[in-house]
């Protein structure tokens, strides 16, 4: 069956697809496995670029342009900017498990997801829905951009207007978050939570992340959930393991 399809597909298209798919996947895998946040960001650019090519391949030229300009141009640059600004450009040890049991859990989830997919694939029928509900995509005067523009300003007019609110939030949010906090932040002002491990002196203890187990009796909590510290380290702290400093774990 695949031979039949392959025969029907034009070589150029197939080649383009194959190459871009490879780029996309390689980039994606790169993001996940690269130890260096900067590398990850660059890998992300690669994926975005591959996706943009696939957009072009599917006659979504405008989106391809936006993808490159907005995503690769703005978003990834923002990422890089933050990485550089924070100086969190050291490596994360991929081998160290973030949390006991997290990776097995992720593995289980992935396996379950795949099993679900397989079941779905075996049991389900695959069909796509009604055609051209919001307007045809091809063969319009003015091409892709005009068609998209019409859709956005007619059918999707209100969603388009509503995105204004999103941008307002983004601006206000950036302002709020960038505001300098007042110079009073002794963490001891925080009332200790149940484990009382916050009451530990706030400074003068180097190498925080290695000691994380000692503050949490049993590594678990009374409510039966795994301990989930959200820890962010300082770039200036001398960490022997070279751990990345901005970390979150669930």
């Amino acid at each position: 069956m695949s031979a039949h399809i392959l025969a029907a597909v034009s070589t150029v298209d197939a080649l383009t697809f194959a190459v871009s798919a490879l780029i996309v996947l390689a980039g994606a895998v790169g993001v996940v496995v690269s130890r260096h946040p900067v590398h990850a960001a660059l890998m992300l650019v690669m994926t975005l670029f591959g996706v943009a090519v696939l957009f072009v391949e599917q006659r979504a030229e405008f989106l391809a342009a936006v993808q490159v300009i907005v995503y690769a141009g703005a978003i990834v640059v923002l990422f890089l900017f933050v990485i550089m600004f924070l100086g969190v450009d050291r490596r994360e040890s991929v081998a160290a498990e973030p949390l006991r049991g997290q990776r097995p859990l992720a593995l289980v989830l992935v396996v379950l997801g795949f099993a679900g997919l397989v079941v779905l694939g075996a049991e389900a029928h695959w069909s796509v829905g009604a055609h051209s509900v919001a307007g045809v995509a091809r063969g319009q005067a003015g091409g892709n951009v005009a068609a998209l523009g019409r859709a956005v300003f007619t059918t999707y007019l209100f969603p388009f207007e509503v995105t204004a609110a999103l941008l307002v939030i983004a601006v206000v949010g950036a302002v709020v978050l960038a505001r300098r906090p007042p110079r009073i932040a002794p963490p001891t002002e925080e009332v200790p939570f149940e484990g009382a491990d916050v009451a530990r002196p706030a400074s003068g203890e180097p190498g925080g992340s290695e000691r994380r187990a000692d503050g949490e009796p049993g590594g678990g909590r009374a409510d039966g959930e795994p301990a989930e510290p959200v820890r962010v380290g300082s770039p200036s702290d001398p960490r022997p393991g070279g751990e990345t400093s901005v970390e979150v774990s669930r």
Binding site: V88, A185, F193, E205, G208, R212, G215, R231, S234, D237
Partner: peptide, 18 residues
């Protein structure tokens, strides 16, 4: 968050657990 870390020079609060 990161800036506050620098200000507070605390390296290890995990105030929120769970």
């Amino acid at each position: 968050i990161f800036r506050r870390r620098q200000d507070a020079t605390a390296d290890d609060f995990h105030v929120l657990k769970g």
